[in-house]
């Protein structure tokens, strides 16, 4: 009897969480499971098969979108990480007043993503963009080989919206670097570069790796900006996935599911690698 009462009580306690679980299970967990299942389902027979994955890795358009997405995101992430590191380093080194005027600017650019960004880039670098006109007038051929509407051409956009996010995430990591260490190392005859390569960066490493996985996930899932600039035919994962479900002629949900799983796997692999890296850097005894 006592046991039953206790059980009843814990059920009662859980009652307020019901709406949350309906939402989470109904619109997060079940859809995810069904997506994974559907990615392993043969569209014609309904049986379990790898045929969708086979399609993804053999058919030109899908292979291209996987390749393009990986290429664009990797290059963008690499550039963003390096640039943001130096920017965050500059903010950290110049002190608190910099933070006060610099952060609002990051806030502006962070919120300028999506449509506004695409529009602005078309305005500046599009077919009749300002810089193209300017360079033509100046007789420079610098932009002649550059096209905003190509997969290499949109990388600057990825970099542009990646930087504010990355700087915002990196800055707290720099707080782990105590200014006294810098002074101490200088007294001991260490150069500034030496300090950062041997003491500074190893200490910021966990934050850098954590940020890297977020920036990568953010760029590989970018939809709106690309959708406008390259159009809905873009061979990039998020766009391809979207068209597999849209009202377009070639709606192939199973293949779309397989592509989604591939994209999630990429995000997870980067995340896991970053976590392993974090562990290794922590083991080396540099975490604070």
């Amino acid at each position: 009897m006592h046991f039953l009462k206790k059980k009843l009580k814990s059920v009662l306690y859980l009652a307020p969480t019901i709406p949350f679980f309906i939402l989470a299970i109904g619109f997060l967990i079940l859809p995810f499971i069904s997506m994974v299942r559907s990615s392993f389902t043969d569209p014609s027979s309904g049986a379990f098969s790898f045929v969708n994955y086979q399609t993804c890795f053999t058919k030109g358009a899908y292979v291209a979108s996987i390749k393009n997405s990986l290429q664009v995101s990797c290059i963008a992430t690499a550039v963003v990480m390096v640039a943001s590191f130096f920017i965050a380093l500059a903010v950290f080194s110049t002190g608190i007043t910099t933070k006060k005027w610099f952060m609002p600017i990051m806030n502006i650019s962070q919120n300028f993503a999506g449509f506004p960004l695409a529009f602005a880039f078309i305005l500046m670098l599009g077919k009749q963009g300002f810089f193209r006109l300017l360079f033509n007038k100046l007789g420079s051929s610098l932009l002649d080989n550059y096209s905003l509407y190509s997969y290499e051409g949109i990388i600057p956009l990825y970099i542009w919206f990646g930087i504010p996010l990355c700087v915002l995430l990196l800055l707290p990591g720099f707080d782990a670097v105590h200014r006294e260490w810098k002074e101490a190392s200088t007294l001991l005859g260490c150069s500034s570069a030496g300090f950062w390569t041997r003491i500074g960066i190893p200490n910021v490493m966990p934050t850098i790796l954590g940020t890297l996985s977020v920036v990568f996930a953010d760029s590989i899932t970018t939809y709106t900006t690309v959708y406008i600039i390259i159009s809905s035919n873009a061979a990039l994962l998020p766009i391809k996935i979207g068209t597999m479900f849209g009202g377009d002629l070639k709606a192939r949900p199973e293949v779309g599911c397989a592509l989604s799983v591939i994209m999630i796997m990429m995000i997870l692999i980067v995340m896991v690698l970053c976590n392993i890296g974090k562990r290794i850097s922590a083991k080396r005894g540099v975490s604070v």
Binding site: M35, T221, C257
Partner: peptide
Amino acid sequence: MIPYTLRGVVLAISVLTLY
């Protein structure tokens, strides 16, 4: 924290497939 990995596009299409 799952929606951090299952971002917009993916979540939208998985809900679409199911319902």
